[in-house]
Design a protein around this nucleic acid. Sequence first.
RNA 1: GCGGAUGUAGCUCAGUUGGCAGAGCACCUGGUUGUGGCCCAGGUGGCCGUGGGUUCAAAUCCCAUCAUUCGCCCCA
Length: 411
Amino acid sequence: MSKISTITGFADLFPPESGLFSFMEGKAREVFGSYGYNELRVPILEHTELFARSIGAETDVVQKEMYTFPDRKGRSLTMRPEATAGMMRACIEKGGQEGISKYFSYGPMFRYERPQKGRMRQFHQIDCECLGAHEPQADAEVVLMLMHFLGELGLNELELQINTLGCKACRPAYRELLTKFLQGIDHEQLCEDCKRRVQSNPLRVLDCKASTCKALTENAPTMQEHVCPDCQSHFNTVMGVLEKASQPFVLNHRLVRGLDYYMRTTFEVVSTNIGAQSSVAGGGRYDGLVSQLGGPDLPGIGFACGMERLALLMQKESAPEQDFYLAVLEAEALDTALLLACSLRRAGKKGEVSFAARSAKSQLRQAGKSGARYCLILGGNEYAKGSILVKDMTSGEQHEVMQEELIKSVK
RNA sequence: GCGGAUGUAGCUCAGUUGGCAGAGCACCUGGUUGUGGCCCAGGUGGCCGUGGGUUCAAAUCCCAUCAUUCGCCCCA
């Protein structure tokens, strides 16, 4: 029979990575919970229109990266490529969103891209969304919370980048200004993609990685210089709070997020140690999104962290030590050994028991590898007496005790 | 969607000009009647990614294909 393997870009998570994921999820619950965030679990499958309307029909994500297919009644469904849209949909549907609501979520996302280091077709994100706050302090809190969370994961060497994208009032004018600038420079030297972007999405030219494009746009007008007074003051307050909190950051005028719903504050956390896919978290403000999805006119701000990318940066923990390894030397003692091991576990001890009787040498080897503090040896002699040998794996000393007493002693 | 690299033992990888399929680690057994780590001896384990082609002969050369991986792009 031929083997069946995983789908390209889909990965099985074994230890130690699976342990890192659990650790991150636990820390998320703990840290975000302390900021008043509660967990929201939403479906993985949604109506395609949800993503087209929120992320933007013209974005790469929607145009060529979604897992979209018709269900049995012909409705177009899509496996979520990101979490924000679904979480917004859920909040709108539930209704009653008075005041501020804060939710976090985590789980798999799906994008049909070419896999590489730090990029899978099924990948995992931790998401936080804060609805109902338009104040710049909310932006600052979200950013500080993200950095707090990353710090709790042991990641302190990351760079925080921030930018402002302006709002409905000032972005169109800036866009026009930038387009004029781009038309003024030597058009032919731009890369093929950017030649198109001048028309379709001029802001994206600023984010191009090609060195020639970077050089050509060196003196391009920045969004920050051309935002309206409201946006300027909003952004100044955000930066001010970050400074008062001693949170280092760098202004990145080229930080243009790829999802259309972002406005005003955007931010990204990058690492130089994980290859080309350097962004480990990103987010921003999305005040128009909720109403765009048919809900009330609520402001929102949030972010997503890429768990695979964070895992690349985190130290892999070694296997947890165990309290005992129960070695069985005679087949007749196997059942007794199993029951004994279960009693010890119910008393709170961690350990394994051999399922087959084998030589003392091979079992001691096994015990050594398991990292067990004690090797419990049950051979023919002990079995007959109802006793067991307890060997300290560190000192090598051993003594014989009755099985009943062993159980009592650990309770 | 585009480009580069790589597919040989469970793992990491050698394999010369086309000529018997290899090493280290891991695993198992023994050296020690029932005592681990170190050491020694022996052993298990392979459709050489898959399918075609060239050849007396292919892991090796050619074509195709699949997979993995690193980039481009995009994004977390």
